[in-house]
């Protein structure tokens, strides 16, 4: 009786409000899922055909190459993504990709440097050497880009740790500046051409044999380091203060993670596109966090989701000739919605 009275008195604040909101979210999310499933059911034959066609595509070497590089990069990105998202550093991936774009366009622009174009007071030999170096960078821009992005990764980390400026604003500052530099350099040299478009939105044609070697090495390094330092990475991610107090070199692990992220971003950027590569880092971790409640489960699930979404996105991209990056993000979004729907109905 007293309980009833209290309820009547407190009618204005609805105690079930959070639950109702949750129910609303569940209905909406399941609605989207139902539509998707319905669409899939009506297009079963088309989906089957798509898989058959994709199988045919796998005969091409460049497709196989892209698939290998992409799956390995997705794997690295998802593992790093778990700690980055949990440490509230997800924007670092985004910032780094923009820096990567700037660096790539500068590298390409260096191809326009000729020994005649350099200041005349420099000795002839030096001019020749500089011109050759620039031509070399333009022909193989990956190492140059990698160096620039790694340097920026260190910079971003230092800024977000030590500066009075808030971390997210600092990242926005650096990433937009890099993008602006990229756009200016491009318009002054080659103009907005297909290459620049590909850097922005990605292309599966971009992967060369050397990319395969780089990505295999990179993912081996990431996997081994992540496995070996797993307990310490957890400690630093969960509670950096405590980890430092117990003698874990948290700064070192942050640097290591930023370094590996920089490498992953550079390798994956040209396939996924500058504007979309950070989704590989963020989406799998966020989706997994909807469903799983232990760090280990989230990590494993992120890795699986990431690789699976990449493969499916690649299929979309090949069969329907969509941009690869966009296809992969779309698949990741569907997984995120599905996991959110399940989470909301629990």
């Amino acid at each position: 009786m007293g309980d009833l009275l209290r309820r009547c008195l407190m009618k204005r604040t609805d105690p079930d409000a959070p639950q109702k909101r949750r129910r609303g979210a569940a209905v909406a999310l399941w609605g989207v899922m139902a539509l998707l499933v319905l669409w899939a059911l009506f297009n079963l034959r088309a989906i089957g055909d798509a898989f058959v066609q994709f199988h045919a595509f796998l005969a091409y070497r460049f497709i196989r190459r892209a698939l290998i590089v992409g799956m390995l990069v997705s794997l690295c990105a998802s593992l790093l993504g778990v700690t980055l998202v949990l440490k509230r550093y997800s924007m670092i991936g985004d910032g780094l990709s923009h820096v990567g774009f700037g660096a790539l366009t500068v590298a390409m622009a260096l191809g326009f440097v000729t020994s005649e174009g350099l200041p005349a007071f420099l000795p002839q030999g030096l001019r020749g050497a500089v011109a050759r170096l620039c031509a070399g960078i333009a022909a193989n821009p990956l190492p140059f880009t990698l160096v620039i992005v790694v340097v920026c990764a260190f910079l971003l980390l230092r800024i977000s740790e030590h500066s009075r400026m808030r971390g997210d604003s600092a990242i926005a500052l650096i990433s937009t500046s890099a993008l602006a530099v990229g756009v200016i350099v491009t318009s002054m040299t080659s103009g907005m051409n297909v290459d620049v478009y590909n850097y922005m939105f990605g292309s599966i044609l971009a992967m060369s044999t050397s990319d395969v070697y780089v990505s295999v090495t990179l993912s081996a390094v990431v996997l081994v380091l992540f496995a070996l330092f797993y307990p310490r990475i957890f400690a630093v991610t969960f509670d950096e203060m405590f980890a430092r107090a117990t003698g874990v070199r948290a700064g070192g692990y942050n640097m290591l993670i930023a370094l590996l992220t920089a490498m992953t971003v550079v390798v994956g950027m040209r396939m996924m596109g500058t504007l979309l590569i950070s989704s590989l880092i963020i989406f799998p971790a966020l989706s997994s966090m909807r469903l799983f409640s232990s760090f280990r489960a989230v990590t494993i699930s992120s890795a699986i989701i990431s690789v699976a979404c990449f493969a499916l996105g690649m299929l979309l991209s090949c069969v329907y000739s969509l941009p690869t990056g966009a296809g992969i993000v779309a698949i990741n979004l569907v997984v995120f919605i599905a996991f959110s729907a399940i989470d909301a109905t629990r």
Binding site: L86, F234, F238, D239, R296
Partner: peptide
């Protein structure tokens, strides 16, 4: 603030005290 919605089991959290 980051810890409040951190996906970790109690066991994982307690065990992380052993890193030193």
């Amino acid at each position: 603030a980051a810890q409040r919605d951190f996906p970790a089991s109690v066991e994982e959290v307690v065990l992380s005290g052993c890193v030193n």
